[in-house]
């Protein structure tokens, strides 16, 4: 694949230094929300690429959890704290499991895919919730990450973890963008439009779905590792259906138009929630629900359509858009 960088990819590359600079510009608590949003945003990204093939996974928390728990278990029982090793382990675990489950799930579409993926994730939830050795529903804590033998402490440690999170997230986003532009990406869109035609044209829809499922699982697991390391704690709530549901809602709300949309959407939703809680701690869900409805009414194609339509109007892109990866 020797395609040149498209606008999105340039945007992602430019976003990296911007994101890293933010850690010095913004107060630490905002950076913290950005960091956790990148972790969960990766899972939303996993949901989004499946959505491009018309598949709605209501159980993506499964791989989010597998990533987090793999890192946690490796830390707890093997004493591994190297972030890169943990990432690789999380990816491997998720790819193996997704590859096997894929044979089952690739036959399903629409609501049946959604519910079966939900069922599988809830079985893991049940297993973890009854494993007292792993803290049951309370979960357990993770060690501080190290990097190839380097163990930065305190503020430096947090900054390093943030930077690594940004690099990994944007790297994966870039890779996924390549996937969307590859033949697989176009086959997926064709599957969403009309699967039967894809089969008539001589391509295996099952195979494309299977590959997409594994890729989505890997990305989500990476998100799980990064999120768990930032938090220092994992619990089975990661694979509960309410968590998976939120990933789906973010993806729909953000729109499937661009690879950056779920990442930005996750952060925006998080900030909206924080302010809703601050304004009205007792009825913040109502505020959140109302805002969601308004967004759907006015922006049926997701938040990303705001940026897309603005772009069409102004020929010269503004700096803010470059930052957001357009």
């Amino acid at each position: 694949m020797t395609k040149s960088f498209d606008k999105t990819e340039w945007g992602l590359l430019l976003a990296l230094p911007v994101l890293i600079c933010l850690t010095f510009l913004l107060p630490a608590w905002v950076v913290n929300y950005i960091q956790v949003s990148l972790g969960t945003g990766l899972v939303a990204l996993g949901v989004m690429i499946q959505m491009r093939a018309g598949l709605v996974s209501f159980g993506q928390g499964l791989y989010f959890c597998i990533g987090g728990y793999t890192a946690g278990l490796a830390g707890k029982f093997l004493g591994i704290s190297d972030l890169f090793v943990l990432l690789v382990m999380g990816l491997l675990a998720s790819v193996v499991i997704a590859f096997l489950l894929g044979f089952l799930l690739r036959r399903y579409r629409e609501i049946f895919f959604a519910m079966l993926s939900l069922a599988v994730s809830m079985i893991l939830f049940g297993l973890l919730s009854s494993t007292e050795e792993l803290g049951s529903t309370d979960g357990f804590n993770l060690p501080q990450p190290t990097y190839l033998g380097w163990a930065p402490e305190g503020d430096l440690g947090e900054t390093v973890l943030y930077v690594v999170t940004c690099v990994v997230t944007l790297g994966l986003a870039l890779g996924l963008n390549r996937v969307l532009r590859s033949p697989l990406g176009y086959i997926n869109e064709a599957i969403r439009e009309n699967e039967l035609r894809v089969e008539y044209l001589g391509t295996s829809a099952h195979r494309a779905v299977h590959i997409t499922y594994v890729i989505a699982a890997a990305v989500s697991a990476a998100g799980g590792v990064l999120w768990a390391m930032a938090l220092g704690h994992v619990d089975p709530e990661m694979t509960n259906w309410t968590t998976s549901g939120q990933f789906v809602f973010v993806s729909i709300l953000a729109g499937t138009g661009n690879i950056a949309a779920p990442l930005i959407g996750t952060f925006l939703l998080e900030i909206v929630r924080v302010y809703a809680v601050e304004i009205s701690p007792n009825t913040w869900q109502m505020i959140l629900g109302t805002l969601m409805l308004l967004t759907i009414i006015f922006l049926p194609r997701g938040l990303w359509s705001l940026i897309a339509s603005a772009k069409r109007k102004t020929a010269a892109p503004k700096a803010s858009e470059i930052m957001e990866g357009n």
Binding site: M51, V56, E110, G245, V248, F249, I252, L253, N282, T283, W284, Q285, M286, L288, G289, T290, M292, L293, I296, P300
Partner: peptide, 21 residues
Amino acid sequence: EVLMVLVTYAIFLVLEDATKL
């Protein structure tokens, strides 16, 4: 159809808090 799931989820959130109120 998928968008409608989100719509009904948003309605659910509103109903939850309305019940509480």
